[in-house]
Amino acid sequence: MTEAFSGRCLCGAVRFEARGRPKGVFWCHCDSCRRHSGAPVSVFVGFENDAVTLTEGTITTFKSSPGTTRGFCSRCGSTLTCATVHFPTETHYHVGAFDRATELQPSKHFFTDEKLPWLRLNHDEQGK
């Protein structure tokens, strides 16, 4: 049986399903991700391109920088994807867009040199 992860944007106009094992789940601290999401850090899960099916709507894309294309819902503005030439066969989806986001726990950090100095990520501190 293949694992399936369903996701959607905030308004539900865009829905997708990813099948199989994620390529990885990671924190991204880059300036571009911060500006795209409006959050101090983004958490992504990577899936092979052919493992994801768009079941409703369309992900609107734009080239945010050379070699990087970002996706969002054109109706509600939800940030959804990031694809780069560095990983040509996979797309990274914002973990928060998945129904079972709690199961997609990050294990790596990227662009830590761009991390905001006041951001503290203590996994043992819950709600503090």
Rank of each mutant, 00 (worst) to 15 (best):
S65N: 08
A97P: 08
F111C: 08
H109G: 11
S65T: 13
G38F: 04
C9N: 05
H86C: 02
S32R: 11
R15K: 14
F111E: 00
V14P: 13
C30P: 01
L104R: 06
S6L: 09
M1F: 01
S37T: 15
S78V: 04
S6Y: 09
T81R: 05
P106A: 13
N49D: 15
H109D: 14
I59W: 04
D99S: 13
N122Y: 11
E103G: 07
G77A: 03
G77I: 06
P106Q: 14
R34E: 00
A51H: 09
N49T: 03
E114I: 04
T112D: 10
C11E: 12
Y93E: 04
E125C: 07
R70Q: 13
E114A: 12
V52Q: 00
G7N: 06
R75G: 04
V52W: 01
T60M: 01
G127D: 12
G96T: 03
G127F: 09
H94W: 08
T60A: 15
M1L: 10
A4I: 10
H123K: 05
K115N: 04
E114H: 08
R35W: 01
L121M: 13
R21D: 09
T89M: 04
F16N: 01
T58N: 09
T58K: 15
E90A: 10
F62G: 02
K108W: 11
S42Y: 01
C73I: 08
Q126V: 15
V95M: 06
Y93T: 05
R19W: 03
S64N: 05
R21E: 15
H92F: 12
A97H: 03
V25H: 11
A39H: 08
T2F: 00
Q126C: 10
T69L: 11
T55F: 10
S65R: 07
K128D: 09
H109T: 09
T53R: 15
Y93D: 05
S107T: 15
D50G: 02
G24I: 06
H92V: 02
H86G: 08
C76L: 07
T102C: 03
T112S: 12
Q105Y: 09
R8V: 04
R70L: 13
V25Y: 11
H94A: 13
E103C: 04
V95R: 08
C76T: 10
A18W: 02
A101H: 11
Q126R: 12
R70Y: 07
F47C: 08
G67H: 09
T2I: 03
R21H: 08
C73Y: 11
L10I: 12
L121T: 11
L104W: 08
F26Q: 05
P22D: 11
